[in-house]
Simulated assay, not measured.
Amino acid sequence: MSKGILLVNLGSPDSPSPKDVKKYLDEFLMDERVIDLPLWARTLLVRGIILNTRPKASAKAYQKIWWEEGSPLIVLSERLQEKVQKKVDYPVALAMRYGSMSIKKGLQELVDKGCTEVKTIPLYPQFAMATTETIDVKVDELVAEHFPQLKITTTPAFYHREDYKEALAQSIAEKLDGLDYEHILFSYHGVPERHIRKSDITNGNCKMNGKCCFKMGSKQHEFCYRHQCEITTVNIAKKLKLKNGTYSTTFQSRLGFDPWLKPYTDRTIERMGKEGVKKMAIVTPAFVSDCLETLEEIAMEGEEIFHEVGGKEFTVIPCLNDRDDFAQVLTNMIEEWATIKNTIASH
């Protein structure tokens, strides 16, 4: 079998215009694993309310962070793909879950190059319904409908890989080197609490109290986003030798009125500033590519909140983006898979 790799990231509007942003938000928010309401309720919320109010504001936000080359997330993902391609002997395609760089196009590119076996790699270190799962489900749908000849191997969450932890810790250490800071926030993308319960394969073992996240060996941890975020923070804090009380985990980007994972990033920034923290650093480990949520929501809005309540220095640590060590992490994952497949084939 001829092997190929499909890297999959979130996606982006084609441009920061309200029209393109509206089109993108429609596809994104109508995904039943992003807004997990019945179709009628999701349609009413998204197409009846959100898409009539949000696209203009979101377009202005995108305009603030847009690069000459295009969407930062797309550009950075393409740079990463190019680095990985140079390191492996298999075709490496790039796709987005939402937007014009579709997963269907990515799979077609690999098929056109003769691939019959594809490893998909969602570019999300932690598992979530709205990230890894929706990619896996979409791939399954497309293969069943358009690419029945393809054999797919999915990739689980990789937050616990040693090479990933080393790369993330190194990226943070480089930015913190010589920096005088009082607290570092590990800010992860938020999800509704019900998503955690829906992903609980033990059917109710998750107590949503923050305690079971740290009980190692629980079966639900394989698909528990909250656990994987909390443990990512713990792992990196150990590698950086951070002192207790100088770091914490928060969640950003909530939508609507349902309970989302807490504590919230924006409120934590505000509270710490009011409590006298003057120098804060912030890292966003749920994202591997800088995007609207990191470049605008954190680096602009977060810094503004911090300064408004008396904070002085607000240091934003870049995502892994196209770092050589992160490209090597993906290369290692690919080579491990290929080795296993070649071993099986030889027997």
Rank of each mutant, 00 (worst) to 15 (best):
P55Y: 08
R271W: 08
S102V: 12
D258N: 09
P13K: 09
N342C: 01
R33M: 09
V21H: 09
S12T: 15
K64Q: 13
G273E: 01
T284V: 12
S102M: 11
H195T: 06
F251Q: 01
L51E: 03
K64G: 04
V92S: 02
G217K: 06
L176W: 08
I74K: 15
I121Q: 04
K64S: 11
M96S: 06
P38A: 00
P259L: 00
R33L: 12
E222F: 14
K87V: 01
E313L: 03
T339M: 10
L176T: 05
A130S: 15
P259R: 00
E141K: 15
E162Y: 12
L330M: 05
D200K: 05
G178R: 14
W66N: 11
M300V: 12
R79I: 01
E297K: 05
K215C: 00
T331H: 10
P318T: 08
T202L: 04
C291T: 09
K341D: 01
E69P: 00
E313W: 01
M216R: 15
L242M: 10
G210K: 07
A167S: 15
K151I: 07
S248K: 14
G273C: 07
K56P: 00
E304P: 00
I172S: 01
E68K: 15
E308A: 13
A327C: 09
K241Q: 12
C213V: 07
N342W: 08
P72D: 07
L320M: 12
P259K: 00
A286W: 02
L44D: 02
M300G: 00
T53K: 15
T343Q: 11
A41T: 10
L242I: 08
G302W: 00
I135C: 13
M300H: 09
I172N: 00
Y164P: 02
A167L: 06
T339C: 05
D140Q: 14
F28L: 13
D140S: 15
K56W: 09
W66K: 14
K279C: 02
E230Y: 12
Q170V: 08
M129Q: 13
T331A: 11
T294G: 02
R254F: 00
D180T: 12
L320D: 04
Y159F: 15
R254Y: 02
Y264F: 11
V191I: 15
N235Q: 14
N244M: 10
I344Q: 12
F287W: 06
